[in-house]
Structures are given as C-alpha cells and as structure tokens.
Amino acid sequence: MFLSILFPLLLLIIISPCKSDYSVYCLNGRPAFSIFNVSTFTFSARCSTPGQSCYDKKGKCSTEHLCCPRTLKMSSKSQLYDRATNIKFIRIGNDYKNAYRLFELNLLSNNSIMYDSYQRWFFFEQTLRDLFEMPNARFWYAVMNCMHNYGIAYAFVPLNATSVTANISAMTILTRQKNSFDNLYICYMATRKENRRQGLGTSLLQQIVHRALDEQKNGIKYITLHVNTLNTIALEFYEKCGWRCYGYLPKYLDPEPHHATNHAYTLILNIDNVKNVTSLCRDPDAVDIKQSDNKQSIENCGRVPVQL
C-alpha cells in the first residue's frame, strides 16, 4: 500500500523536477527554479539561464542557491553566445597585439520579445556606464534607438579574460544615420580607463572605416558623430584620424550632469578621402585632407583642426 502511494509521487517528481521558487531570484528578475535531486531527496535553486547567479530576498547568495558568476569562457571558437542577454559574440579578424580579441555583437531574438530586448538594452547601458565611468548616466533610449536602427556593435575583450560579458575593454556602437542612408553614425565609443593608450580606440575606428568601405556599394559615403564641445581629448583624437568639424549644435546633447556642456560639434569623415585604413590615426597620409575641409572646419566650428 505504501509503495503504491510512494511510486506515483516519485514519478511525479522525476517527470516535473522544477518548480518556481519565489524566495530566490535570478539576475534577470525572474524567480529561480527549485530543482529536485533524486539522489539526496533535496531541492536546490537554479536559474533558468545557465551560469546566471541567483540571490535570496536579502540579496545574499548561499551554497544552497548554487550562485556562480555569469561567464563566457574565452576559447578558439569563432562565436560565443551569452544566454542572459541573447547576444552572440562573433570573432572578427586576428587578435590585436596578441592581447585582445575583437568581436561583433550580434543581437539574437526569441519569442519573449519584451524581456529579450530589456536584457539587451540593460547590457549595453551597463557596459557604457562602466566604460565611460558614469554610474548614473542614462544611455537607455539612445542605445535602443541606435541598435534598432540597423545597429552594429564591436567590442574588444582581453585574451586572458574568463568572461566576455564582464570584461569588455573597449566598445563602439554605430548605426545608419537617421533620414540619411549615406551615413554610418557612431553613437558611442569608449575604452575602459585601465585599457587606454594601447591603440584600442584607433583599432575600433579602423574597423568602422573598413565597415563603411564594405558598404560603399550600399551607398555609404560618410562616417558621422557628435562630440561634446568641451571634450578636447575626443575632438583632437578624431581630427588626427581625419574627421573634420562641419557644424555647431547648441543644446544638442541631453542636459545630464555628466556632460560638461550640452553643446556639440558634428564631425564627418568622407570615406572617399581614406587612402590607407591600416595606418589611419598614425600616418598623416592615410587620409587625404583637403584645404577646403580645414577651412570649413574653421568657419563652421571656429576650430583649427589638430593634425598628426
């Protein structure tokens, strides 16, 4: 009699080993699953996303909750997939200085569109906050606009990193310029403080120019971006790489505390002027700068372009 009752219960547990545990939550905000261990007859909490850590109501992890960091181990594979954000990391070209690996971030999709998009935008916003060292900055809507509008993202990750997602050293997001399909527009580009002055920003710009040249057949002629008028380091960097100022936009940027001012310059690179992508930002002959371009920069923006 006892066995006749126990057997169906065991069968039910084996067939349905998971149940939502509303006292333990995963990083994605969803309840963890309680997994039944047949050998020990105990339940333990796991997240639906492999490798994602979970925590209790007090925000603490414990051994019974099987907490572990979300990681994507570096390998020789050409593609890595982060299930938490539904983003595929696609390896591009050769490793940079045998120290960094370049990835294109490919946004995947699934049936949970709202949840899926939320995770992606959260990932990009948090990464930009870390790179720009602006923990309270609001990148959310700008990131969504960029990535929805034919968005492209590139990122460098150290070869010795154990996690692709958590160790992005430099990243750029670009898109098609709104209402102008002859432009690639750089929405963001930043390098983590400890990884600066190693050429990662230059290498990202070269990758962007390569992309623009590949898309010339689709009508791309220019690479455009906006820079805060007081961000002299960024302005001089882009000017040395061949960009020229073509316009002054008062109060263009969002009025946020992390902006030194909300005025911006419009910088443009004519890719027809690019003669050698691999020496971009390093050789003054890599871009054929016309005197008329320098003159226009002075007239429109009041800036004498910095050159190599």
Rank of each mutant, 00 (worst) to 15 (best):
P135I: 05
I15Y: 07
K295H: 06
C187W: 11
V277I: 15
I5D: 07
M74R: 12
K275G: 06
Y154G: 00
N28T: 02
R211P: 01
C18G: 08
I298Y: 07
V157W: 00
I271E: 07
C18D: 11
P31G: 03
E299G: 00
K97A: 14
T175E: 11
F123R: 01
A153F: 01
T232R: 14
V38Q: 09
P8S: 13
L131Y: 02
A84E: 07
V306M: 11
L230C: 08
K58Q: 14
T165W: 05
Y22R: 15
I223M: 09
F139G: 07
C301I: 09
L3I: 05
A99K: 14
L235R: 15
L131D: 05
H258V: 13
I208G: 06
M134Y: 04
N218M: 06
N270P: 07
R303P: 05
Q307V: 02
F36T: 02
N160S: 08
M189C: 13
I168Y: 04
G201S: 11
T202Y: 02
R101T: 15
Y96Q: 07
C241H: 03
P284A: 04
S163E: 05
S163C: 08
C54T: 12
L9K: 12
A260Q: 15
V209S: 08
C301T: 05
L72F: 00
P17S: 05
N195G: 00
R211L: 15
R70F: 09
A84H: 11
Y222A: 02
C301N: 09
S112M: 01
C61I: 11
Q126D: 10
R196Y: 03
I90D: 06
Y25F: 15
P257W: 00
F132I: 03
L72P: 00
T261K: 07
C245E: 04
Y252I: 02
T224Q: 12
C281A: 09
N136F: 06
E125P: 08
S23Q: 11
I14N: 04
F103L: 01
R129Y: 08
Y118H: 13
M144K: 15
Q296M: 08
E194C: 08
T278F: 04
Y252S: 11
S4M: 03
K193E: 11
E194D: 15
Q291M: 10
N86Q: 11
N145Q: 04
